[in-house]
Structure formats: structure tokens, C-alpha cells
Design a protein around this nucleic acid. Structure first.
Length: 568
RNA sequence: UACCCCGUGGUGUAAUUGGCAACACAGCUGGUUUUGGUCCAGCCAUUCUAGGUUCGAGUCCUAGCGGGGUAGCCA
């Protein structure tokens, strides 16, 4: 424990700045308040994990790793009406996929017995009481944000009476909502959490792990800190909205006289063009605005995984955005960049034509097929190369040809030249049009002296475009995903409607693409770069006969920007 | 209008804890390039405001302004 800093203090340059939680930990270690770091990631199993949880996971597991400590995975399963094992499984899978392994796996429900014993202790100490007020009355007695509350009429029951009542509650003698156990703190506290908070509510509902054993269930505050304590957590890291709960967290630990972790709050992740609340994500799924929790447009971890995001890129993103208390909104571009950056270094390059137009090479020897050598990844020599068939009939991207084009258009135009990537330079001399005047075919000659890798011509052309050989190309389905929402802040409360009004109708475009033959062997989960287009992953929907590629993220598109600017 | 938290470039995060405001991303300029990708270079800030303490304030104090959170028997 408490490993000394690596002695690289001689290189002040490299010292990464420490966020405020790291600083707090350093201080507590230095002062002797704690002698190690033990954290936990405590999800409630009532939904799928999303990118916001990834921030918390990276923080908690990352801290433990960096400080030579431990991190547990604990399910905060104190409310059986909302929770389900379906989520327990998916959460574990997601945490592992992200690249973390917990030291211990726990469930708050495993502590129900201990929690109950502690509740009796507080009752005996005169620090908790059974209250007969119903939910409405409790609310009325609690007061408001600006007015103090009033004491419950049952606040002064004797410990003996309370104990008897509590045991009767546990034994199932009362109906749902008939009684609660409350901590006896201060009904006039400016902090509403301290106005005699409910510890137990009655709910005759089976629990996904404890079955019918309990009909009283602990509230978050009464379970969370105690679970932390039992696991000897030192730093209980949570999001900002729990800040006002900290005094209560402390009160329980102090009044029980048990191990007392330090709760530290940080700002949860907000991201542009994204909704993050469980309620809204659930609504997107339930109302079929997406195909499921793992729809590639969802910010869930299962969604991002299916989209093709790598765990490395998500971890890099989380490290990149930092940790603070300021309530910020991260530009989703940052997330997209992180996966681009990772995939740029590891994804093999392949050629795919999404919107084909035929290109015929009029001076190409009839029936000749030439194998061209193509580099797999210019960023990684060890990735090697592959062979691509080149022939007299090719497909190129429709948008890469213009009959007439502006000076700045570096691609193919009538009377112009372009390099076919890993192929030859071609010169366009004519086009073929249908009756409506649409171009159906581009006619070119090729320059035999310009073969890629053995160019002896000395010719320079402005542009290079991708292509596939018409007879050798494979057809695949391509799903081009875009942002799910068309506005930066879909959460923004417009008086008129809901966040659903901001759904992007073009968030998915499905098309049939022609790809180079090497792609026929691609397996589900393989990630490639379609040259000049973007990064793609093979979707599990793929079958033997038909591959499905999801667009993970497009390449940066400088030309697109130039063109868009020109139109304004 | 009670209490708590937070205000540093377009967006985020730093600043040896009182000592020349740094880094990343975005944007804009240019360069390299057989991906208009990658890569490289340059440009882009009166630290919310007003006072105060100090030789010196992003940092400390006071007041104001702005943003967020909180009144579940949810977590």
C-alpha cells in the first residue's frame, strides 16, 4: 500500500497534473487518515451502462490501479421494483469489455442482515424511530426548501416501542407504505436530507437475489455508505447530485461508529448531441426510435461496442476529458476523435465504393486482370500489404467525378487526370449519358508508366481516389450511422415538446457497397478503414452470404468543409 | 427565493498551492503526402464583475452577477 511515487522527479516535464480527487487522496494518505486506496463502482442494476458510467468506471478502477489499491464492483440493489438480473449480467460484461477487473463482486443486498442489525442498534440508541406517517404526510411534515419541517408525531416513541414496531415491520405485519423507519436527526436542518430521512420502507415485493426474505428495503442513504464501510472503502466517489447527501453519509457512519470512508463528488459527463438519462435512453428503446440498447447510435457501452468503438479509445477519452466539479458539456467530437486516433494506427485500409459509377479504361487490354499491391496501413509497416485485382472496368465513387469542376476540385473531371489509389493514373476523355442526361459511365485511358510503386513517368496529379474492379467487387451492406440527435443539446427544455423532437431523421443510411475482394473474409467485429471514407466494423447481423458494415466514424473531411463553405 | 457546489480561450482540463496563464480538442493559415486521412508549423485569453490584502492574485478576503443541484417511502 501507499507505494511511493516513482522516482522520476528528476523529469518535472512528465509529471501529469493531478485532478482534485487525486490531490485529496494524496493529502489523506499523507496525513494518515487512510493508508491505502479502496474504491468501488456501485451501479444500480436497473439499466444499461453508458458512456457517462465509463467515466466513473475509469475513475474508480483507474485510481485503484494507479495507487496500488483495490476496486470493487458492487450492485446497489436496494429497490427490487426497478431492478433485474438482466442488467447485472450486462453491467459485468461492460466493465470487463472496458478493460477492468474488480477485486471483489458484491451486492448491497448481501448486507441486508447487517444493515438490519445496525438499524436495531440506532433504534436502541434512540437515534431512529418508526413513523406512521404516510408518504404524503411525510412530505408535508418535511417542510420545503425555504421552510423548516415539523417533528413527526411519532418521533418520541421509546426505544422499546420502536424496536417492537421495527421487528413487526420486518416480520411483515404491516402493509406497503404503512410505516417507515426514520433516522432521528433534525427536522429544521437546512439540508433536507437530514430532516429525519427514511431508512426503511415497506414493500412486499420479491427481490432478484433475496427473494421473499425481506419486505422492508433500505433506502439509498441507509445502504450505500454502510456497504462502503463494510467493504472498507476509503474513497467513495460519486457524482455531484449526492453532495447534499454527504452529511447524512457521515452521520450514519459516525453514529454507528464504523469505518468511515470519505465521499468525494465529481461532475458527471454531459456530451453534445447526446442524452444520458436512463429514463430517456429507456424511452428511445421502448418506443423503437432505436433498435435496442445496443443500437449503434446509443451512447450505451453495448451500443458503442456494436458501433465499433474500441475500449482503448473510450478509456483514452475518459482520461482526456479530466475530472472536476464544474458542470461541463464535452463536445462529442472528442469521443469521435479518440476512436479515429486509435483506429488510424491499427485499422487495415481497404477500398470500398459506396455510391458507384462505372469507369471504363478504353486502352486497357481486353480481359486483362492485373494484381496491384496495396499497403495495408501506412501508419504501421508491419501490417504488410495485399493484392487487389485491377481491370478495365472499375467502379469509382460518384462524387469523385465531375463533368465540370471548380479549380479546387482535385478529383476526376472530364479532361482531367487522377491517381487511382494503388493503381494507375487515368485521364478522362469522355462520359456516357443516358436519355435524361445523367452520366452513366466515365471513359478514361490509363498511363502504363504510372503503376503504383513503379511509376517511371514523373507525372504528378493533384488527387487520388479509391476504386474497385467491377467484376471482382463483393457486394456488402453498409450502415452509415450519424448522430442520433440533430441539435447540440437535445435535453434543452423547449416549452413545446420533448427531446424526441430533436431526433436526427438521417441518423442511419443503409446502402449497398462494392468492396475489394479481400473484405470477403472479414469476420464479425473486424474493424477496417474504407480509404477516404471512414472506419467501419463488421456487424453481428452479418451472415455467410452478406456482410454488414457499420460506420464507426467518418474520416475528417476537409474537402467537405471547403465545399460547404462555398455554398454558403 | 433556504442551503450546498461551481465560474480560467469556441470546448474541456492545468498552473510547482501567492511568482512569466500551460496542454488537448475545435477553428483559421500554411507545409508534407499515392487517403482532401495521418503528420508538421503558425495564429487564436484583460482568468465573470467590482473592491480589498500583497512587492506580486487565476489562486487569499468582501460584495455582487451568472450557472448547476436539492423538497422520492428512487439511486
Amino acid at each position: 500500500m501507499n507505494a511511493p511515487e516513482p522516482s522520476d522527479s528528476a523529469t518535472p516535464e512528465k509529471t501529469p497534473s493531478k485532478h482534485f480527487i487525486r490531490q485529496a487522496i494524496d493529502a489523506d494518505l499523507a496525513s494518515g487518515r487512510f493508508d491505502g486506496v479502496a474504491t468501488r463502482f456501485p451501479p444500480e442494476p436497473n439499466g444499461y451502462l453508458h458512456i457517462g458510467h465509463a467515466k466513473s468506471i475509469c475513475l474508480n478502477f483507474g485510481l485503484a490501479k494507479d495507487m496500488g489499491g483495490t476496486c470493487n464492483l458492487r450492485f446497489d440493489d436496494t429497490n427490487p421494483v426497478k431492478e433485474d438480473t438482466e442488467y447485472v449480467d450486462s453491467i459485468q460484461e461492460d466493465v470487463r469489455w472496458l478493460g477492468f477487473e474488480w477485486d471483489n463482486l458484491h451486492f448491497a443486498s448481501d448486507y441486508f442482515d447487517q444493515l438490519y442489525d445496525w438499524a436495531e442498534k440506532l433504534v436502541k440508541d434512540g437515534k431512529a424511530y418508526v413513523c406512521d406517517l404516510n408518504a404524503e404526510e411525510t412530505r408535508a411534515y418535511r417542510g420545503t426548501l425555504t421552510e423548516p419541517g415539523k417533528d413527526s408525531p411519532h418521533r418520541d416513541r421509546t426505544p422499546e416501542e420502536n424496536l417492537e414496531l421495527l421487528r413487526a415491520m420486518k416480520a411483515g405485519k404491516f402493509k406497503d407504505g404503512e410505516k417507515t423507519l426514520r433516522a432521528k436527526i433534525d427536522m429544521a436542518s437546512p439540508n433536507i436530507n437530514l430532516r429525519d430521512p427514511v431508512m426503511y420502507r415497506i414493500a412486499h415485493v420479491p427481490h432478484h437475489r433475496t427473494g421473499d426474505k425481506w419486505c422492508i428495503y433500505p433506502m439509498y442513504d441507509w445502504a450505500h455508505g454502510q456497504s462502503d464501510s463494510l467493504e472498507k472503502i476509503t474513497f467513495s466517489i460519486c457524482t455531484l447530485e449526492f453532495e447534499h447527501h454527504r452529511p447524512l453519509y457521515n452521520w450514519y457512519c459516525e453514529n454507528l461508529g464504523i469505518h468511515h470512508p470519505r465521499q468525494i463528488e465529481f461532475a458527471r459527463l454531459n456530451m453534445t448531441f447526446t442524452v444520458m438519462s436512463k429514463r430517456k435512453l429507456l424511452q428511445l428503446v421502448k418506443e423503437n426510435h432505436v433498435t435496442g440498447w445496443d443500437d449503434p447510435r446509443m451512447p450505451t457501452l453495448v451500443g458503442l461496442r456494436r458501433r465499433g468503438y474500441t475500449p482503448e479509445s473510450i478509456r483514452a477519452f475518459c482520461a482526456d476529458i479530466g475530472v472536476a466539479k464544474f458542470n461541463s458539456t464535452i463536445d462529442v467530437i472528442r469521443l469521435e476523435n479518440s476512436v479515429r486516433e486509435h483506429l488510424n494506427s491499427v485499422a487495415p485500409r481497404r477500398m470500398a465504393v459506396l455510391d458507384p459509377i462505372k469507369l471504363t479504361i478504353t486502352n486497357w487490354p481486353e480481359g486483362k486482370v492485373e494484381m496491384m499491391n496495396a499497403i495495408n496501413n501506412p501508419e504501421d509497416e508491419s501490417a504488410g500489404s495485399r493484392e487487389i485485382p485491377f481491370s478495365g472496368e472499375l467502379y469509382i465513387e460518384t462524387e469523385d467525378f465531375r463533368e465540370e469542376a471548380p479549380r479546387k476540385f482535385f478529383r476526376l473531371k472530364k479532361g482531367g487526370s487522377v491517381r487511382l489509389r494503388s493503381g494507375y493514373i487515368v485521364d478522362c476523355h469522355d462520359v456516357v449519358k443516358d436519355d435524361d442526361g445523367n452520366i452513366t459511365e466515365v471513359l478514361c485511358t490509363y498511363d502504363p508508366e504510372t503503376k503504383s510503386g513503379e511509376d517511371t513517368s514523373g507525372r504528378k496529379v493533384k488527387g487520388t481516389i479509391h476504386w474497385v474492379s467491377r467484376e471482382h467487387a463483393k457486394k456488402v451492406t453498409v450502415r452509415n450511422y450519424d448522430r442520433l440527435f440533430k441539435v447540440e443539446n437535445p435535453d434543452a427544455s423547449s416549452d413545446t415538446g420533448s427531446f424526441l423532437d430533436h431526433l436526427n431523421p438521417d441518423s442511419l443510411t443503409t446502402l449497398t457497397a462494392h468492396v475489394e475482394p479481400a473484405l470477403a473474409e472479414a469476420a464479425v467485429g473486424d474493424r477496417v478503414q474504407f480509404e477516404r471514407l471512414g472506419y467501419y466494423v463488421v456487424d453481428p447481423d452479418s451472415t455467410d452470404g452478406e456482410l454488414v458494415f457499420n460506420r464507426i466514424v467518418p474520416l475528417r473531411d476537409t474537402w467537405g468543409k471547403i465545399e460547404a463553405k462555398g455554398k454558403k
